[in-house]
Design a protein around this nucleic acid. Sequence first.
RNA 1: GGCCCCAUCGUCUAGUGGCCUAGGACGGAGGCCUCUCACGCCUCAAACAUGGGUUCGAAUCCCGUUGGGGUCACCA
Length: 458
Amino acid sequence: MVRVRFAPSPTGYLHMGGARTALFNWLWARKNKGVFVLRIEDTDQSRSTQQSEEAIIDGLKWLGLDWDEGPIVGGPHAPYFQMQRLATYDRHAESLIAQGKAYRCDCTKEELDRLREQAAREKRGFKYPGTCRNKNLPRGTPGAVVRFRMPDEGATTFKDLVKGEITTQHKELHDEVILRADGVPLYNFGAVVDDVEMEITLVARGDDHVVNTPRQILMYQALKYPVPLFAHLPMILGADKQRLSKRHGAVSVLQYREDGYLPGALLNYLARLGWSHGDQEIFTIPELIEDFGWEHVGANAGVFNPQKLEWVNQQWLKLTPPVEIAKMAGVSPEFAALMQERARNLNEIRDAYRAYIVPDLPAYDEKAVAKQLTKETRPLLEEARAVIDRTFEQGPQAMEQAFRALAEQRGLGLGKLAQPVRLAVTGTTVSPPLFETIALLGKARTLRRIDAALERIK
RNA sequence: GGCCCCAUCGUCUAGUGGCCUAGGACGGAGGCCUCUCACGCCUCAAACAUGGGUUCGAAUCCCGUUGGGGUCACCA
């Protein structure tokens, strides 16, 4: 049974990197009929907030990345909030201490900071010197944290599903803190204990965690638990090739909802950022689930490209049934059908709808009016009005035929005739095909608009 | 700085020793189609970081160099 998890810390919204990590985990779970667990790692009490937690959950929900176990839905390993699992960490820490694999340490923060600064001055990495290693400090020692006893010699090797074999010498490691004095675990320990408890079989997470992996493997081994598989996903970079951060365009995925993107399009784009399936660019969600695999996840970081995302969104818009688009954009299905192949996002559809479908008279683009609605075009517009009046009931194709006949009669291209009419009817020079738009608007409203436009010429 | 990871068009990537005069996609340039816009179609420009090996043969394997990134917390 494949069991994977997404374990965000509620210290901010869900951004692209987190969304992609969640997506890859989710795809793997769905592909293997496994379980996708959502776990909230809220042990940084100074930075975790309720709002962030909600924002992350909202983001996942919008994307359609549903979880089988976790907040709201519960599950056999509840609770799924680390701050509610303190007793579990304590139990495991005590067991490690009893076996001599961990120990209490009451070194003060000040001493440690001094050592750290000194190490920095000497351009060395800081390593805890092991002051309390053999003190056997008892439970209840004031201010004591628990440190994990790292082996001094040897090396740990693991096979990362995307990066291949990675080896770390144990001498590079040091006895890191796994439990604070107040019993709140630190990342490496909390994650390991929970992944063990929740029976996670594969850990897929950001690249920045590769260095944590050997330490965590050592902890799994100390705990006498099987080690899961690991897959480290490369970073997503901003246009400047810098890691995506709040300053570098790392916006909430929910911003894309505001901007009129389809959740599936975002998922499609994110999947292709770092993963590939031959030359295919556009995938439905079932296709993504079917085709996804770690073999084709790239090992190098990728730049987030908004233009390509927009293109993917456009493709999705074309492939989505009009009724669904209508629902999302808040427009009629008929109009959605006309707009879906020429809009890049839902907002363009909604804006157009509000501009010239909803109101009785559209807001006119004055610059275009000055150019298109002139004394020269007036007779044309009058004749067009008559044509519409006469042929409307026969449908858009008949109207078009009649317009073509009229244009030809006047020695004009259809464009010369259609543009003033389009402006009169929609208020703009850019719209879906004129005759279908007119059909959708209705005869009375169309004629009223043309009359209003004629008024403007005077 | 130590350790670790990465390196194909501007960007996302295909490529797993011969199919590569390196393919696709976004973006760019030009054109076709056309009632506007968009779609679609066609054409063009655009890359294997670098130096050594290994091999009959290297974008593909190995080493060095360079460049980029990650990480060195009682953050995650």
